[in-house]
Design a protein around this nucleic acid. Structure first.
Length: 759
RNA sequence: GGGCGAUUAGCUCAGCUGGCUAGAGCGUCACAUUGACAUUGUGAAGGUCACAGGUUCGAGCCCCGUAUCGCCCACCA
């Protein structure tokens, strides 16, 4: 008697339907799940929690996101099926600089500008823009089958979350970890903000190497130089001639025999016509260029350090937008750096001070987002001294409180902590959490007083010829403090670096250290994310977690690989070789894609997308569907009740099935998803289908409908099928649930597969 | 310059604490089957596990070195 079951599993329509069943059951909510376990007399184990990595709310999720969710979901489903109330907490990230850049471009395409729209309105509109993307992202997450608890979903700019982020900042300030400092920062002239080192990349670009003579001031020195060095001055080599306007010294290595006699002498900086000293500094490389380094403390990190050591003046000649400015000849003001470089080179050449120009290729630092060359400039920023936090994180790693998979990456993390620098946490953006600081009398005065230790407000007034409007103190808080005696509070305009809030994700989403969820679900058990953000994210989360909660935020961090295009290159929009997840879903279904991730996108390795393989997995999904269909087709309606209630004997096949399930369980527990996924496929396809179904087919061939032997064999087969569905479910939830529901429809199973227990 | 990893079949890669007569998927070839299976089944060909040493009864796996590739970090003007 044929059952009315279609010949293939229609992933496109069925998957959505099935997800709705799960959603309706509420089992993704651990509180409801706890009740479910108790009601059904299942053993109740300790909770299992993952605060899922929040994708950026400024675009469409890509395959990499889907891959991460596939892993999270597999472990989550397995934990659920082994008695742990499981919380997969989803969220979305505001992704500060990236979103601001995307949304600003969007405004520009509509003929509007960020400045024209204004800060408040910009924030509001950007928020709405993110809400749309968040809904879209959510649909993708559900399409891959992510069984997350959407009643607990968070956006990183949610006021409840921001409150906790602010509290952390206050605590850090009172602990003396947060401070304002003047340092060389990476300024992106395009994004107009400071960037942390990790937000930059390096790229080889074409440039020039200009050899310029800085003549000595004194006649005798010039003569000596002519004799010894071949020119009347000292020749410096630079890739950035325009910064010479801000030079305050020339440095040579103290060991360098060529320049011994000139150390301490003065040269006349051409064009700027400023006398600057020749100093000896061991950081100067004898081999590079001429061995003489022009020192521009305001515009190069190494120069800044040398300047600090020798107490050199700092002269700013480039502003935040990459334009020439400051105390320089009028004709250069407002010029771009490259134009200025050309103009200077021309003038120097005319003056006979240009020796030569070499065309070179060199590594330059660029903005990770917009690829614009970074302008190192001096700026006042908020810093976090992470040294003590890094020490604790390092200790936790060494003690094994956090496990990194694959192991090799743990060493990379340890190395990072061992060489960590203060973290610049302020960004000159509008999109993000505004740093909750108020300056009495203004930010300018605060910074000036910091820079000029020992000087007071009167000195400031004198210097700038103004009346001070406050005490020069700061106030930490969201709301403007009360003014006394007409003091003026100026609000900080900068926002926090995105990672300052996402670094706190594991506890902010659980309501912070005082939250109900926190008490029940913290510390969490896992974090899974791309290897590419190890330092940005896991590194920060460990530090924040230990600092704020005295516990590691999670015990295991698993790094997924990066999904590459078929030819092994990186997928990117500009190359047009990206593959949309929706395309794969439509062609092969979510289960097939998930299986591919488990088997081929192993932690820590980069994996080219292989459609052929996904297709093979789709065939396996069809195989499961048809094997199940065949088993059901063999049962006559009149036998169903008997088969359902029949207690199976411990046959060899059943014994092997049990062993198989244990094997797969241990793979999952060791996060060896590739072995687990390969295992379920191998066993179901080549053992259950190819061997056992064929055997049983023969065993019942001549039996009459309703016979005891048929009942025994078909019940055995049903048992094997159900157990296989359970152990396959964490990997391929959709098709297994669909089959389970077919069983339910015939009275051969109960409830939802997602809520079943293994073993 | 420093750190990390990779190198196994035509391709993409597994191979956890050393027992391997080295596996999978895809591809190739042969045969079978229109079946529960937008196919599937059976079988075949195909690898001195990068190279050179060492430890061991035994090494794809452990140790030392070499080569090539990749990723990350770093202030080289």
């Amino acid at each position: 008697m044929e059952k009315d079951i279609p010949k293939t599993f229609d992933s496109n329509s069925k998957e959505v339907e099935i997800y709705q069943l799960w959603e309706k059951s509420g089992i993704s909510n651990p509180d409801l799940m706890e009740k479910h376990l108790q009601q059904n007399g299942f053993e109740l184990k300790e909770p299992f929690t993952i605060t899922l990595p929040p994708p950026n709310a400024n675009g469409t999720p890509h395959l990499g996101h889907m891959c991460g969710y596939a892993f999270h979901d597999a472990i989550g489903r397995y934990k659920r099926m082994t008695g742990h109330p499981t919380l997969l907490l989803p969220g979305k990230d505001h992704a500060g600089i990236q979103t601001e850049s995307v949304f600003t471009k969007l405004l520009e395409s509509q003929g509007k500008s960020k400045q024209g729209v204004g800060r408040e309105e910009f924030y509001k509109q950007c928020y709405e823009f993110c809400l749309v993307n968040m809904q879209n992202a959510r649909e993708y997450e559900q399409r891959i089958g992510l069984s997350a608890d959407y009643s607990r979903e968070f956006f990183t700019l949610d006021p409840r979350l921001t409150k906790i982020v602010y509290e952390t900042f206050y605590k850090m300030y009172s602990d003396g970890l947060v401070y304002r400092d003047k340092r060389i920062i990476n300024q992106c002239p395009h994004c107009k903000t400071a960037l942390a080192d990790v937000d930059t990349e390096r790229e080889e670009r074409r440039g020039i190497f200009a050899y310029i003579i800085y003549p000595f001031v004194n006649e005798e020195d010039r003569k000596l130089a002519k004799e010894k060095l071949g020119a009347e001055g000292i020749t410096v080599a630079t890739t950035r001639p325009e910064t010479m306007l801000g030079d305050t010294a020339v440095a040579v290595n103290p060991e360098d025999v060529r320049y011994q006699e000139f150390i301490g002498k003065k040269v006349l900086l051409p064009i700027a016509n400023r006398e600057i000293p020749v100093i000896a500094d061991e950081d100067t490389d004898i081999e590079t260029g001429t061995g003489a380094l022009k020192v521009t403390p305001a515009h190069a990190p190494i120069d800044f350090d040398i300047g600090k050591k020798h107490d050199l003046p700092i002269i700013n000649v480039i502003d935040e937008e990459g334009k020439m400015s400051g105390d320089i000849p009028e004709r250069f003001k407002g010029m771009g750096t490259i134009d200025c470089s050309k103009a200077l080179v021309k003038e120097l050449d005319e003056m006979g001070l240009l020796v030569k120009i070499e065309n070179i290729k060199h590594e330059v630092t660029i903005c990770e987002r917009c690829k614009t060359a970074i302008e190192p400039i001096i700026s006042n920023q908020w810093y976090l001294n992470v040294e003590s936090l890094a020490e604790r994180a390092l200790e936790a790693l060494e003690k094994g409180q956090v496990k990194v998979i694959p192991e090799g990456q743990q060493k990379a993390l340890e190395y990072f902590y061992g060489n960590i620098q203060p973290w610049c946490i302020s960004r000159q953006l509008w999109w993000g959490q505004r740093i909750p600081v108020w300056y009495s009398g203004g930010k300018k005065m605060y910074d000036w007083l910091l820079e000029n230790k020992g000087k007071g407000i009167e000195d400031f007034e004198k210097e700038f010829n103004v009346d001070a409007t406050g005490s020069g103190k700061i106030f930490l808080g969201e709301k403007e403090p009360e003014s006394l005696d007409g003091e003026v509070w100026e609000q900080e305009t900068d926002v926090f670096d995105t990672w300052f809030s996402s670094g706190q994700w594991p506890y902010t989403t659980l309501g912070g250290p005082e939250g109900e969820d926190f008490k029940k679900y913290y510390p969490t058990q896992m974090m899974i994310h791309g290897r590419d953000i190890l330092f940005w994210w896991t590194a920060r989360m460990l530090m924040f977690g230990l600092y704020k909660t005295n516990q590691v935020p999670y015990s295991t961090t698993l790094l997924t690989g990066i999904i590459l295009a078929e030819d092994g290159s990186k997928m990117s929009k500009s190359k047009g070789n990206g593959v949309e997840p929706s395309e794969i879903f439509e062609k092969y279904g979510a289960d097939a894609l998930r299986l591919w991730y488990y088997i081929d996108a192993l932690p820590g390795s980069n994996s080219p997308l292989r459609e052929e393989k996904i297709k093979g997995n789709r065939n396996f999904v069809t195989k499961i569907w048809n094997a199940s269909r065949f088993i059901l087709m063999n049962m006559d309606d009149s036998e169903l009740e008997d088969i359902a209630s029949y207690e199976v004997n411990e046959t060899e096949r059943i014994k092997q099935t049990r062993e198989h399930m244990q094997k797969i369980s241990s793979y999952i527990e060791k996060y060896q998803f590739n072995l687990g996924a390969e295992g379920i496929r191998e066993f179901f396809w080549h053992q259950v289908c190819d061997v056992w179904i064929e055997e049983i087919k023969g065993e019942i061939k001549d039996e009459e409908i309703g016979s005891g032997r048929r009942r025994e064999k078909l019940a055995e087969l049903l048992y094997i099928l159900k157990e296989n569905l359970k152990i396959m479910h964490p990997f391929i939830p959709f098709v297994t649930e669909a089959v389970w529901q077919e069983l339910v429809g015939l009275g051969l199973a109960e409830g939802l597969l997602i809520g079943q227990q293994i073993g």
